[in-house]
Structures are given as C-alpha cells and as structure tokens.
Design a protein around this nucleic acid. Structure first.
Length: 256
DNA sequence: ATGCCGTGGAAACCACGA
C-alpha cells in the first residue's frame, strides 16, 4: 500500500493540484497538513468524489490536518495529549482498516528562536515523544507522518551553515528528533537512501525550486512492526513545479 | 543577509509560514 504526506498550504486554494496529484499517483492513504480551513469548510465532496474517505481537524485561518483513505478510517484522537490549553489543530490520529495506526502531524515551526514560539515547539515535541512512546507500547504497526518542521541533519538542507540559528535546525530541535528516533522509530526515507540529498520543501522565492535550494522536513517514522515492510519511498518532486503549487512536495512510502 | 512569495481572513493590510 502507498501512503503519502503533503503539506498543501491551503486545502481549498490547492484543490486542483491536490485532485490532480491524487488522480495521477493514487495513494491509498494521505496525510495533509496546513489545511488553512475551518472545520466546516473542508472540501469533503470533492475528496469523496476522488474516491477517498476523510477525517480532519480544521482551524480558522491556520494549521489544520487531515487523513484521507480509500478504505475505512476511524478517528482515535484529534489532540496531542498533555496540554489542555493547546488549541492549535496540528495532530490527528486514526486506525486504518488493516489495523495500522497512523498519526498525521504538523509540528510547530518555532521561529523566531529563541522565544515563545520556539518554547511551544519544544513543548509540543516533548508531548509528541510521550504519545509516540505510548503508541510503541501497544506493539502494533504505527506510522508518525507529516511536516515535522525539523531538518534532521546537514544532509537535509542545501546550506547548513545558514540554518544553524533557525528553529528548524537548532541543536535542541535536532536532538529532540534524534531522541524520538532512538525511542524506536525508523526514518523511512533515510533507511532506504542513507546518503542521498532528498528535499521535500522549496521556498517560493529566490527561485529556490529551480536552484534546488531545498529542505527535508516532511517525514515518515515507522514503528518496529513496519520496518521490514518498507518497500520503497520517494518525493513527487515534479508536483512542486506545477502551476499554483504548495511550497512542499508530496512524499510517499510503499509498504508490503 | 533578506519573507523577495503565497495563503486566508479581514479589510484594501495583516499574521503567518520556513
């Protein structure tokens, strides 16, 4: 089965691109981030007509996550536990019909750093670590998927020296990602391509896409139960070059 | 070195993103 993640940067503004990409690549399950749509303005009809069921957690103006599936999908939760005051819709968790658990997440950007937004990012990351540990303890197949807003290593950014102070690459954030991996997760794309330059995001300006000045910040983390089912993975890079594209490209994995 | 672009919501600019 093919599972994909795509930060759409506005699900309604991106609808033609999203539908074309779904039609061309036919993923079985899709995690979307940055819907930028309130709960009652999600394009469910168009998604259904494209052949997908959907659950989503919207928010007026910003954030918002969704999971689409050709098969049945049952929502488990739509908030990351541990902070009742967190109102931002950045997390949704579901059970797929093959009993796999999938968490679709949009980790906070965190800039400017240091500052309250960076503190929120680290706090959110710690709660994700706790939740991820609880999911691992169930000993079932689990996927943590989405826009982590983390550049894991120097290999994942075109000019690392320019990013050392940035909230996507600061040591605290890289350590948090490393700590999560060491909890027992596998970074799917790095497992298959340990030494390749792979990007999933290119800025809208400075001709970043044409210069291939990108970042790898959209990730698939596999629980141990899934590690040996990983067949292939990649980035639908050409989608980033389409008219009215998001600044992210879709990323996908294939599981047997 | 830098939101230079893009989105959505409100208002004809703003916040936010990475």
């Amino acid at each position: 089965m093919r599972i994909a993640t795509y930060n759409v940067n506005g699900v309604n503004g991106r609808l033609p691109v999203l539908l074309r990409w779904l039609e061309e690549t036919k993923p079985d399950v899709v995690c979307l981030q940055e819907l930028k749509a309130p709960q009652d303005n999600f394009p469910l009809k168009a998604i259904n007509e494209a052949g997908y069921n959907a659950i989503w957690h919207g928010q007026k103006q910003w954030n918002g996550v969704a999971i689409l599936a050709k098969g049945e999908i049952r929502e488990i939760g739509r908030a990351l536990p541990g902070n009742e005051e967190d109102q931002q819709s950045r997390y949704i968790e579901a059970l797929l019909e093959n009993d796999m658990v999938i968490a679709c997440l949009y980790l906070p950007n965190g800039n400017p750093a240091p500052g309250p937004k960076f503190d929120y990012k680290l706090e959110w990351f710690e709660r994700l670590y706790q939740r991820a540990g609880n999911l691992l303890a169930f000993k079932v197949p689990v996927l943590l998927v989405g826009d982590f807003n983390v550049i894991p290593t120097e290999l994942d950014v075109y000019k690392p020296e320019r990013w050392v102070e940035d909230a996507l690459f600061r040591p605290e954030v890289r350590r948090a990602f490393e700590k999560l991996i060491h909890q027992g997760w596998t970074d799917a794309l790095r497992k298959l391509y340990p030494n390749e330059t792979i990007y999933t995001f290119w800025d809208y300006f400075r001709n970043a896409y044409e210069r291939n000045a990108g970042l790898r910040i959209d990730h698939f983390l596999l629980s141990p139960e899934l590690e040996h089912k990983l067949v292939s993975a990649g980035v639908d890079k050409e989608v980033r070059g389409w008219e009215k594209s998001s600044d992210h490209a879709p990323v996908w994995i294939e599981l047997k």
